[in-house]
Design a protein around this nucleic acid. Structure first.
Length: 906
RNA sequence: GGACACUUAGCUCAGUUGGUUAGAGCAUCUCGUUUACACCGAGAGGGUCGUAGGUUCGAAUCCUACAGUGUCCACCA
């Protein structure tokens, strides 16, 4: 074996290892070894990152979780598909490119470039981002199938999107309608309700009357929209206004025509708020528009007047005083006019939530327009259910009440949020006036309309110029990636997918839509388990963002500390649904652990190699051995480490199965660092002939760590010449990535409890002896003399057989005696007492004070425990095990008291 | 206005159906270059689990109220 460097240098191995994995074909499920082909498929669709730039640490966290899961399941023998992709992110990408163009001097990119050229500009940017993103995903060690790489805007995905639209239209779920939309003036496009961010800011609330003789005073923060008012709504039971309901008043507020204001009744109006009357502007408020539709349905219609246009300026309808002005200008003028005419009754500063575009940042205007909508309430032909029903069912009873068609959300509380949202969903506005996106598959010629993937026969057909909301394509991600609408083998094998992870910020935007799309298109759920993770924040708890200037490039972190270090530091310390923080100390400790594992491996391999030299015939045997040594032979330490290993295998397996990444990682780290490195390997320096066990332990530990830290483990595995059982020439060829996961069932049966207890006692003894040395300030180099006294009424502790290694660990001689000589200092665990010979050099007063303090604590404990044990209520109601353990502990404490008191007297 | 989460050691966080004297990492203090590792080893100190009630033999854990922090949602004009 070549000389291995003391410190592990990730930068020297990661790219090489990744290339080897890629070349071996194991990322592609079809090329996995035999045993994986036979078992259950396991599929994770990677949430496609937006092609708006580069990946951040949040992506690294998400990738680490998914890849850990994929590797774990692959090693367990499942046919694993981890499918990578990117999202064209229509509005986000176009907004970003337009912003860049404007920053570089262009005034109106759309006008100056035209549709074709601007799209080309965006396409180029998107391709560049894509290249960067894909290389970043590789750097993160992601074991995804590059052969199945997908893009929401590629041909196959576009086909799926069009097909979906056409089918939904055919089912009457998609319709074209004139309704109030969320309009971004800056983006010159609609936005869905989910793309609006509410921002709190100060506003003025004006109270006024339309005219001197108008009977009701109303209030508003948007006076300029009042030019389009057509009604005043009051609560039907409001005594003040009841008699006015149904009457119409004509008022002149300066609009193009005098306004006909009808007094209408609406339950939604709060009589307590303000004047208890609401000026209704159907064209510029979603709520008011709903009243407009209600009135229409009632056969008592009111008018709708649009006074703000798509350009954000007042329309002709607003009257010549206002037409062409911005809303701010019009507002000022309108208020000034009210003041002049003595109609303004009050002005008040209030805080108000306004909706802004999450991409363009401007205030969203409500404007009535003809757009394409997806109906949430209409019954789907032949299904007797609406899309809303499907979305509800999928997370409650399961689709059609079938358990296997139920999406489980972790943590559970998000299920409730999801359901609340489902109940309040409005029809989804699908069409966007953006250019970067899937063109709506609808053609027009004169009055004719054709909905279909291809333009119809004949000349003169023009395709709708609008594009689809970007979430329409990402909603179909779980099956468009598998070849739908074709009935592919992949679709049959991998859908519904097994697991999906995402941040809670896109729960509504994405998760719901995936459920909707899969339920509609395939009558199935998109995934069985959804895991909602929190946001990664900086050390101060702030969100990472470019504007805050606290962004961290994951690739730089990887270059400095290694991918494994990054992954483990991101995964340890997280819990589902909760935000976590990233800071330097964390990544350093990840790096340190990687190095620790490296050195553990280095040591074990050295020991195996040197022992093999003494009996060369065994060398190849040992390296190739993957048989588990029996744990009823060997020394106590051997049996102990093997049983601990078994426990850890079982526990880590269970934790990974239930997505407890942090708990699994912590347990594994504690075992590796404490049990293995600090104890067993130290013992192995004394007790020889452990090649076989060390070999097993190392192999198992590497396997367990592989999902978390794929690079260092694969690297060591290769150096050691370990071969993966189950690997084959077709995939992996003995690589750790396809090695068989340690068997947790077999492991669970192999824990010899008495050995674990006995070893625990010895461990406590060693710690006691070390503490005595440290407390007494004995130089580390000085060899000392210990004696051990065992209590009579306890199972004997096997000190003598283990004295050799214990002796080395405490740097002193150890003898078992009947009584501790006078003048020695002691420490007691209850069952065993340790004495250290200080040859008279001991501060008796100090020692006495220490003993007294310890006794004091013990006595308090004994009193409270005895109190519990004599309490009838407790002894009759508490489980037997709890009582038993408590009694044992009490006895121990009593013995300890006895020992210490005796000591105090001498 | 509604909902949800969080509040545990100096810091960041675990704590899975309520059950020994509440844990980890980092930081702190003391000691240490015994040939795997100073990206290390040994030892130590440090918490009345936000506050107040309640349920229970038993509460960090369940319930109620309150306070602070954060997030999401919402048509109070």
């Amino acid at each position: 074996m070549p000389e291995l460097p003391k410190a592990y240098d990730a930068s020297l191995v990661e790219d090489k290892i990744y290339a080897e994995w890629e070349a071996s074909g194991v990322f592609n499920p079809d090329q996995l070894p035999e045993r994986n082909q036979k078992w259950t498929p396991y599929c994770i669709m990677m949430p496609p990152p937006n092609v708006t730039g580069v990946l951040h640490l949040g992506h690294a966290l998400e990738n680490a979780m998914m890849d850990t899961m994929a590797r774990f399941q692959r090693m367990r023998g499942k046919k694993v598909l981890l499918l990578p992709g990117t999202d064209h992110a229509a509005i986000a990408t176009q907004a970003k490119v337009e912003k860049t163009l404007i920053e570089s001097g262009m005034k109106h990119p759309r006008e100056e470039l035209g549709r074709e050229k601007l799209i080309e500009e965006i396409r180029r940017f998107a391709e560049e981002s894509k290249t960067t993103i894909l290389s970043q995903i590789k750097k993160m060690g992601t074991s995804c199938d590059w052969d199945r790489l997908a893009y929401t805007f590629d041909e196959a995905r576009s086909k799926a999107v069009n097909e979906l639209f056409v089918r939904m239209y055919g089912d009457g779920l998609i319709y074209r309608g004139y309704r109030v939309v969320n309009w971004s003036v800056k983006g010159q496009s609609t936005a869905s309700d989910d793309e609006i961010e509410h921002v709190e800011r100060p506003a003025k609330l004006y109270t006024f009357k339309y005219a001197k003789d108008f009977p009701i005073t109303i209030a508003t923060t948007r006076p300029e929209t009042k030019l389009g008012d057509t009604a005043v709504a009051v609560h039907p039971k409001d005594k003040r206004y009841k008699k006015l309901i149904g009457q119409t008043f004509t008022v002149d507020v300066g609009a193009a025509k005098p306004l006909e204001i009808k007094i209408i009744a609406d339950e939604g109006v709060d009589p307590e708020f303000g004047t208890g009357a609401l000026g209704v502007t159907p064209a510029h408020s979603a709520v008011d528009f709903a009243m407009y539709e209600k009135q229409k349905a009632k056969g008592d219609p009111i008018d709708i007047i649009a006074v703000i246009g798509p350009d954000g300026r007042m329309t002709e309808e607003a009257g010549e005083l206002y037409a062409g002005q911005t809303v701010e200008e019009a507002r000022e003028k309108f208020v000034a006019r009210l003041r002049e005419q003595g109609l303004l009754e009050g002005e008040e500063e209030i805080m108000q939530n306004v909706g802004t575009s999450d991409r363009y940042g401007d205030v969203i205007e409500a404007i009535p327009m003809t757009q394409w909508w997806l109906d949430m309430n209409k019954e789907i032909p032949g299904r007797k259910k609406s899309l809303r029903d499907l979305m509800r069912e999928a997370v409650t009873s399961g689709l059609d009440g079938k358990k296997e068609k139920k999406v489980t959300i972790t943590p559970e509380r998000f299920t409730k949020l999801y359901l609340d949202r489902v109940e309040n969903l409005r029809d989804w506005c699908l069409s966007r006036q953006l250019w970067w996106g899937h063109r709506i598959p609808v053609w027009y010629r004169g009055d004719e309309t054709h909905v279909g993937i291809e333009a119809p026969e004949g000349d003169g057909w023009e395709q709708d110029t609008d594009t689809l909301d970007t979430w329409f394509s990402s909603g179909s991600w779980c099956f468009s990636t598998l070849g739908w609408p074709d009935e592919t083998a992949d679709l049959k094998t991998f859908h519904p997918t097994s697991w999906m992870t995402m941040g809670y910020e896109i729960l509504y935007l994405w998760l719901m839509r995936m459920v909707l799309m899969s339920a509609y298109a395939l009558d199935d759920i998109p995934f069985k388990d959804a895991y909602i993770h929190g946001i990664l924040r900086d050390e101060h708890g702030k969100k990472f963002s470019k504007s805050a200037g606290n962004g961290i490039d994951p690739i730089e972190v990887i270059e400095q500390y290694g991918c494994d270090a990054l992954r483990i530091s991101l995964l340890i310390g997280i819990s589902p649904g909760n935000d976590s923080r990233y800071y330097t100390e964390k990544i350093e400790s990840g790096r340190n652990f990687t190095n620790k594992l490296w050195n553990i491996s280095r040591f074990i391999l050295t020991v195996i190699a040197s022992e093999a030299k003494q009996s060369p015939s065994h060398e190849s045997e040992i390296a190739a051995s993957s048989a588990t040594p029996r744990n009823d032979t060997g020394t106590l330490a051997d049996r102990w480490i093997l049983s601990r290993l078994s426990e850890v295998v079982a526990s880590v397996t269970k934790k990974l199965e239930t997505y407890q990444f942090s708990a699994a990682g912590e347990e594994l780290r504690d075992f590796t660092w404490n049990d293995l490195a600090d104890w067993y390997l130290e013992i192995a320096k004394v007790e020889k002939g452990k090649s076989e066990i060390l070999n097993t332990v190392l192999q198992t530990v590497l396997k367990l760590w592989h999902p978390f830290m794929p690079f260092v483990t694969e690297y060591v595995w290769g150096l050691a010449g370990f071969t993966a059982k189950g690997g084959s020439a077709s995939g992996g060829e003995g690589k750790l990535i396809v090695a068989e996961w340690p068997d947790p069932v077999g492991a669970r049966h192999a824990v010899p409890l008495p050995d674990a207890v006995a070893f625990g006692s010895l461990r406590t003894l060693v710690v006691d002896m070390r503490r005595l040395r440290a407390e007494q300030g004995v130089e580390a180099a000085k060899k000392v003399e210990f004696v051990i006294v065992e209590a009579h009424d306890h199972a004997p502790v096997p000190v003598e057989e283990n004295a050799e290694w214990m002796s080395r660990l405490v740097n002193g001689s150890i003898a078992v005696v009947d009584a501790i000589p006078e003048g020695w200092v002691v420490a007691s665990s209850g069952t065993v007492t340790v004495g250290l010979n200080l040859a008279g050099a001991v501060d008796l007063e100090k020692e006495k004070a220490k003993l007294e303090k310890e006794l004091d604590q013990l006595k308090k404990y004994v009193v409270s425990t005895e109190g519990k044990l004599t309490n009838q209520e407790f002894t009759t109601k508490a489980p037997a095990q709890v009582i038993h353990d408590m009694k044992a502990k009490l006895e121990e404490a009593k013995t300890k008291i006895e020992t210490l008191e005796k000591r105090l007297l001498t």
